[in-house]
Design a protein around this nucleic acid. Sequence first.
DNA 1: AAGCACACCTGCTAGC
DNA 2: TGCTAGCAGGTGTGCT
Length: 283
Amino acid sequence: MPELPEVETLRRGLEAAVVGRRVCSVALFGERTVRRQDPAQLVAALSGRLVSGAARWGKYLVVPLGGGAGDEGGEALVVHLRMSGQLLHVGAGAPLAHHTRAVIGLDDGSELRFVDPRTFGELFVADALEASGRPSALAALGPDPLVDGIDADRLAALAKRRRCALKTLLLDQKVLAGIGNIYADEILFRAGLRPARAACSLAPVEHGRLVAAIGEVLAAAVAARGSTLSDARYLDLGGAPGSYQEHHAVYARTGAPCLGCGTPVTRVRVAGRSAHFCRSCQA
DNA sequence: AAGCACACCTGCTAGC
DNA sequence: TGCTAGCAGGTGTGCT
């Protein structure tokens, strides 16, 4: 569900409503939510700490923790929502949603809740923040298009020596961090490139179109507070939907007329994922 | 080493 | 109406 624009919207929500609060309590439900470390270790690391910021790398939320007893060791709570996770900020009296996996009580009486039906999502406390504020646990991630900007030369060089489909390249978090299935399709439509095109087949002018499309689509989606599909699985921190789904040109529009030329949108499978495109507008 | 299939789960929908 | 197969925004592993 959540890709870069959705996670960025949550990050902004945390910045506005949660940064500066202190953690009073932590409750975990189920076995799978904390799996990189002993859950008791996460509870101990969070309890009593100050939420001192809200950052994001790709689809990971990184919440730096301050106010430890003598340790300013640069710890951070890291959250990944995977397919079905939600992060909600509610009053303590709000009814507990089904599939609530974690409840973090804050010193103003509010709660941060992690809800995740499919249990793919996870929480962990990372130590050893690098100078950039990025946890070493996320070192394998490529540059984030919003945080780091897009290095067009690097992207072109990577594309040139990969024989995989263009869409597979965009979904590779080591290449660029944050793009998922929805925005890969929307970016490729905007760039006029077919998802199954070999990454190494692009002409220089096409590299330029791709880089521009990445920036434009992600910026527009962040401005619209992300995409909420018909199942309403993505909601922002306050429970409100995004609106970028109203601007989707191809994603989940199989058979509907292309907004550019009227040709029905085609759906194919690329590397095991569904891919939507216009046969006429994308080459 | 890149690329692919599959596993991890629950819930929803389309089709019978 | 009720069952079942298939599919879903992501990523980590292990095999070729």
